[in-house]
Design a protein around this nucleic acid. Sequence first.
DNA 1: TGTTGACCTTGAAGTTGCTACAGGGTGTTA
DNA 2: TAACACCCTGTAGCAACTTCAAGGTCAACA
Lengths: 142, 142
Amino acid sequence: MKIGELARLADCTSETVRFYEKTGLLPPPQREANNYRSYGERHLERLRFIRNCRALDMTHEEIHQLLSLMVDPQSDCGGVNQVLDAHICHVDARIAELVQLKAQLDELRQRCQQTQALDACGILQGLAEMETAARPERHTHL
Amino acid sequence: MKIGELARLADCTSETVRFYEKTGLLPPPQREANNYRSYGERHLERLRFIRNCRALDMTHEEIHQLLSLMVDPQSDCGGVNQVLDAHICHVDARIAELVQLKAQLDELRQRCQQTQALDACGILQGLAEMETAARPERHTHL
DNA sequence: TGTTGACCTTGAAGTTGCTACAGGGTGTTA
DNA sequence: TAACACCCTGTAGCAACTTCAAGGTCAACA
């Protein structure tokens, strides 16, 4: 099948497929006489796998790891489990960050209960006076 | 004061300051005879304001809006409140997305309780079979 | 036969908010 | 005079794509 059909079946665009090929996530397919890319079922399976991982917000690197761990039929799925556990930790960490951020924002929002002069606005005062409390470094990509 | 001192006082780097100038978030300062940038208190206040907004994960565009809304001393803070409310909505939306994602990941993780052969691993099966359920479009930048 | 339209090709540039050079100039101290 | 910390400009890199430009291919229709 051609790239457009593959993309449709995996719910993405042709550009995304070409991008995955360029970055090594998807192996280069065969070409037809007219230089069009020609894909088979294996490609579709792999692309769907990748898209599913992306739907779970995994990075390309995490996906790469999974794909590498899957090539050796002798190996067990311990590595796979580790990658997933680590990813779940990222998500947990990001949720915690955002919940904390949300609390800060709510507190700031409380400071101005009605429309008033700029000078009196508690939000602007808050934004001016906040201690640029060295914001926690990102440990996640989310 | 010179750029390095300004940056230190606002807890960022000189590169970041120059970047803000280039993108129009910070106005170009005067220059000394040697072409060094020369900043005053007003610049520091503005930079701190920007850094505080960034610490709250606002985008440059949101910050731009706030800064624009602040220049007219006649106006009230209704616009400011709106920007903040919209931002809080973004954070709420992102938290909801991630919580939902976390649930999906936990469910997937359940499918493989011990290290086993790749073929049997419920996680890999899950990743292969998941319906690429057109993942919800991002409405936020977070 | 010509042409329209849908599809394919490559490569480069844009997105966000910086960070990290490279290659130079300036200024103070030893 | 040299070392060193600081400043300057401009460019490239990150992630994961998206968009655009400029063109090639192919089937169908008048």
